[in-house]
C-alpha cells in the first residue's frame, strides 16, 4: 500500500516531469497560450527537430554548456579545497564547539540567497564598499570594475555553495578513526605524510561526494551568474531561463535542459552511488 502510494508520488512528481521535458524538446513554438504545440497530438506525431538541430549546429549553445561545466568545475574545486580545510578545523575542535562552528557555517544562509547576492553587489559595484575603502586608502584613484565579471561570479558561487562541501566533509572527518593517524605518526610519518597517506585517502569518498554536491547544482545555476556575472558570458542555466521567460521558446528550453541532464547523468549517478539513497 505504502509502496504503491510512494511509487505514484515519484512517478507524478519526478518521473513524469522529466519525461515531459524530454518530449517537449520536440515541440513546435507558436504564439499563444501555452506557446507550444506538443510533439504528439490527436493526429499522432507532429513534432519537430528544430530545437535539437539548432542546439547541435549552433556553437553558441555548445559553448554555453562547456562554459557552465567549466564554471561548475572551478567552483567545486575551490569549495572542496576551502571546505576540506574548514571541515578538518571543525572536526578537530572539541565536540561541544563543533555544533557551534557548524551553526556558524550555516547561519549566514538564513539571510537568503538573494539578499546575500545583493550584499555582494553592494560590496563589489563601482561605487560600492570595497572600491570606496580602497579609494579612501589612496590605493586606487579610479574604481575597479569588480562587479559583472568572472571573478565576481566565482566569489558569489563559492559563497553560495561552500556549505554544501563543508557539511559532508565534516560528517566524514568527525567520524574518522584518529588512531589510524596516530599509528601512521608512530610509524614515522611526518604531518604532511600522515595527511597525504592516511587522512586524504580515507576521506576520498566524502571529498568526491562534496565535489559532486557542488558541481551538479552549480552547472545549472541561474541566480548568481544573473546577478554578479558579465552579461555576455552565457551559461546554460541562464540560457534555459532566457529561452523560457524572454524568448518563450519552450522546446528550446526543454532541449537545453535535456542536454544539460545528459551531461550531468554520470556525475549524478556517481553522487547517488556515494550517498545514502540507493
Amino acid at each position: 500500500m505504502i509502496r504503491a502510494a510512494t511509487w505514484a508520488a515519484l512517478v507524478l512528481l519526478v518521473a513524469a516531469p522529466l519525461v515531459i521535458v524530454f518530449g517537449m524538446g520536440f515541440g513546435t513554438p507558436i504564439a499563444g497560450v501555452p506557446p507550444v504545440i506538443p510533439p504528439f497530438g490527436a493526429a499522432g506525431w507532429q513534432g519537430s527537430f528544430e530545437a535539437w538541430s539548432l542546439l547541435l549546429a549552433d556553437n553558441f549553445y555548445l559553448d554555453t554548456l562547456l562554459r557552465s561545466l567549466r564554471l561548475a568545475t572551478v567552483t567545486a574545486a575551490l569549495c572542496l579545497a576551502l571546505g576540506f580545510g574548514m571541515a578538518l578545523g571543525i572536526a578537530s575542535a572539541a565536540p561541544r564547539r563543533q555544533a557551534l562552528l557548524l551553526a556558524l557555517v550555516l547561519l549566514p544562509f538564513w539571510t537568503g540567497s538573494v539578499l546575500r547576492m545583493a550584499a555582494w553587489v553592494g560590496l563589489l559595484r563601482d561605487g560600492g564598499w570595497i572600491n570606496a575603502v580602497l579609494m579612501q586608502a589612496g590605493l586606487i584613484t579610479e574604481p575597479l570594475p569588480l562587479l559583472y565579471s568572472e571573478g565576481a561570479m566565482l566569489v558569489g558561487m563559492v559563497h553560495g555553495y561552500l556549505p554544501f562541501a563543508v557539511l559532508p566533509l565534516t560528517a566524514a572527518l568527525t567520524k574518522r578513526d584518529l588512531r589510524l593517524e596516530e599509528a601512521a605518526a608512530d610509524l614515522g610519518a611526518g604531518r604532511a605524510t600522515v595527511f597525504l597517506t592516511v587522512t586524504l585517502p580515507l576521506a576520498a569518498p566524502a571529498a568526491a561526494a562534496a565535489f559532486l554536491l557542488v558541481f551538479i547544482p552549480a552547472a545549472g545555476e541561474v541566480v548568481i551568474p544573473e546577478v554578479l556575472g558579465a552579461p555576455d558570458s552565457m551559461l546554460i542555466g541562464r540560457a534555459i531561463w532566457g529561452e523560457f521567460f524572454q524568448t518563450r521558446d519552450w522546446p528550446q528550453a526543454a532541449a537545453l535542459s535535456t542536454a544539460l541532464l545528459a551531461l550531468l547523468l554520470i556525475p549524478m549517478a556517481l553522487y547517488q552511488r556515494l550517498s545514502v539513497v540507493r
Binding site: T6, L10, L12, L13, V14, A16, P17, L18, I20, V21, M24, L212, I216, P217, A219, G220, E221, V222, G237, I240, W241, F244, W250, A253, A254, S257, L260, L261, L264, M268, Y271, Q272, S275, V277
Partner: peptide, 19 residues
C-alpha cells in the same frame, strides 16, 4: 527518490511547470 536532490533547479522548475 534521490533525483530531486541532484537535479539542477532550473531543470526541475521547467519540468514541474511543463507537468
Amino acid at each position: 527518490a534521490g533525483a530531486p536532490l541532484v537535479l539542477p533547479e532550473v531543470v526541475t522548475g521547467l519540468a514541474l511547470l511543463l507537468l
